[in-house]
Amino acid sequence: MTAPDSDGLLAEQLLRLTRRVHRIQKRHLEHRDLGITPAQSRLLRTLAHWGSPPRMADLAERLEVVPRAVTTLVDGLEAAGKVRRVPDSANRRVIRIELTDDGRAALRELRGARRSAAEEILAPLTDEQRAVLGGLLDTLIDGPDTGEGRRTG
């Protein structure tokens, strides 16, 4: 059994790694001058994996944020030409969000920045260590979720 102090140390290491990943990704994004925040990047990636354009409420649920946070993100991305609001064909009162061509191009740039950042972060690891890390991360990601509260952005 793991001692509580070592669990606390592991949690701190995970938080420090997460911050490092964000810092490095941000640096790689700044070199590409996309003018997209990490939260907007996350929304674009979520849109890209959706089959048909989702409603804002669907996005809020998937992103685990309050609907107002999605409205703010969509407003910024729409002003930048990365997404657009479109009426639902079955119910004109429902508004859906879809990627524009500029949004898809931005996603390609974002993927490149993420890939470059990942290469930098993982460079010290051997292929075997990367495989072990991937397995451990999958175990943690797929673990029980307490579902405590929603993020606000």
Score class of each variant (00 low, 15 high):
23 R>K: 11
24 I>M: 00
24 I>H: 00
25 Q>S: 08
26 K>G: 12
28 H>F: 10
29 L>T: 06
29 L>S: 08
31 H>F: 11
31 H>R: 15
33 D>G: 09
35 G>L: 00
36 I>Q: 01
36 I>V: 15
37 T>G: 05
37 T>C: 02
38 P>L: 11
39 A>G: 05
39 A>N: 11
39 A>Y: 04
42 R>Q: 12
43 L>K: 00
43 L>N: 00
43 L>E: 00
43 L>T: 02
44 L>Y: 02
44 L>Q: 05
48 A>P: 03
49 H>S: 10
52 S>H: 09
52 S>P: 05
53 P>E: 01
54 P>S: 00
54 P>Y: 00
56 M>W: 03
56 M>V: 09
56 M>H: 07
57 A>Y: 04
57 A>I: 11
57 A>Q: 11
61 E>M: 04
61 E>A: 10
63 L>I: 02
63 L>W: 00
64 E>I: 08
64 E>A: 12
65 V>W: 07
70 V>D: 06
71 T>F: 13
71 T>K: 15
71 T>L: 14
71 T>Y: 15
72 T>Y: 12
72 T>R: 15
73 L>F: 08
76 G>S: 11
76 G>L: 06
76 G>F: 03
78 E>Q: 12
79 A>G: 06
79 A>F: 07
79 A>V: 07
81 G>H: 01
86 V>F: 06
86 V>K: 08
86 V>W: 02
87 P>G: 06
88 D>G: 01
88 D>F: 02
88 D>M: 00
90 A>F: 05
93 R>H: 14
93 R>K: 14
96 R>N: 06
97 I>N: 02
97 I>M: 05
98 E>R: 10
99 L>T: 01
99 L>A: 02
99 L>V: 05
100 T>Q: 03
101 D>Q: 11
101 D>H: 11
102 D>T: 07
102 D>F: 09
102 D>Y: 07
103 G>L: 06
103 G>F: 02
105 A>T: 11
105 A>M: 09
106 A>R: 03
107 L>Y: 00
108 R>L: 14
109 E>L: 15
110 L>C: 05
110 L>Q: 07
111 R>K: 13
114 R>C: 09
114 R>I: 07
115 R>C: 13
116 S>K: 14
119 E>P: 10
120 E>A: 14
120 E>Y: 13
121 I>W: 09
122 L>C: 14
122 L>K: 12
122 L>H: 12
122 L>Y: 14
122 L>I: 12
122 L>E: 13
